[in-house]
């Protein structure tokens, strides 16, 4: 079990409801959408432990896409991972009719429907009730940086923050409105980061996302965004690895590391087949290319995939 803040306390008199203050840390791992990929979650926990993080946090969307949704939830709960709601947890605990993913295209919604119906039917009622108790946001400090964790964006649980569609101006406004230095999110399934305002001694963000597995570093005072990606499915790059992020307050500023997770993806695909999940989902797991929910992608992210 990882060392966690033993008793995260609610942020008193917060201007922002349903937030939890999770404590002060130096080096933290953040898990994005798990999408029922319990095999990758298990491996990611082992990796995070070996990489000596202070704590692990999960940013929602534990179910969807993959098989046996209770297994990922049981790993999270069994390990005491402090978690927030994603749109899936919100929808499952509300007995909603759909996943509230935020898609607009009929083909995207078709596959979202298959995914949600399976997950809703296979998630145990006590887990759904637990999902309803989760906070919407987490706040913490990493060194001298204020951190806000959310699922999509701080203003909307299912807002997509893509690298090529999130302007610096918009990001700056989010950081100002929500009184934070670092915004940590998921929901898109693609990991990226960007720092604003060049600081003396640090390498400045140039508006482009940090590459896969690269270490991004920024001198003080770092302000910016880290989309931690997803453990649930690959990053639409032809690799079967999935990803999480480690953020560290170092002496030389804020450091971000995107960590690839290799896991038994063939086993996951076989279990998906036995569970009757769509072959398109399995193809993504086996090839690393997204096959569904593609229409929501901005032009650049769409162009970098196969489909």
């Amino acid at each position: 079990m990882l060392p966690q803040d033993p008793s995260p306390s609610p942020l008193p008199a917060s201007a922002f409801p349903r937030e939890l203050f999770a404590g002060a840390y130096r080096r933290v791992a953040f898990f994005g959408g798990i999408y029922s990929n319990y095999l990758a979650l298990d491996r990611a926990l082992d990796l995070a432990r070996s990489l000596k993080v202070d704590a692990v946090f999960a940013l929602g969307d534990f179910g969807a896409f993959g098989p046996h949704p209770d297994r990922a939830v049981e790993i999270l709960r069994g390990n005491g991972i402090v978690s927030i709601q994603g749109n899936y947890e919100e929808a499952l605990s509300d007995a909603a009719e759909d996943c509230r993913c935020g898609y607009v295209d009929p083909r995207d919604n078709h596959y979202a429907r298959l995914s949600f119906d399976y997950t809703a039917a296979k998630t145990a009622a006590p887990h759904k009730a637990w999902m309803g108790t989760l906070p919407r946001h987490l706040r913490m400090t990493l060194g001298d940086r204020r951190v806000l964790c959310c699922h999509g964006s701080p203003r909307r649980i299912n807002e997509f923050l893509w690298a090529s569609a999130t302007s610096d101006a918009f990001l700056r406004k989010l950081l100002d409105d929500y009184q934070t230095d670092l915004l940590i999110c998921t929901h898109t399934g693609l990991h990226w980061s960007r720092f604003l305002e060049p600081a003396s001694g640090g390498s400045a963000g140039d508006g482009r996302p940090a590459g896969n597995g690269l270490l991004a570093r920024h001198g003080r005072p770092a302000r910016g965004i880290i989309n931690v990606g997803a453990l649930g499915r690959p990053a639409n790059n032809g690799r079967t690895d999935v990803w999480f992020a480690i953020v560290e307050a170092g002496d030389d500023g804020t450091r971000i590391e995107f960590v690839p997770v290799a896991y038994d993806h063939a086993r996951l695909a076989a279990e998906m087949e036995r569970e009757g999940l769509p072959p398109e989902f399995r193809e993504t797991i086996l090839t690393g290319w997204w096959t569904t929910c593609l229409e929501i992608l901005p032009a650049k992210e769409r162009a970098s995939g196969r489909y």
């Binding site: 569609a165 999130t166 302007s167 101006a169 918009f170 700056r172 406004k173 989010l174």
Partner: peptide, 8 residues
């Protein structure tokens, strides 16, 4: 619009 936080 940039000063007002425009997104797109």
């Amino acid at each position: 619009s940039e000063s007002l936080g425009v997104r797109e």
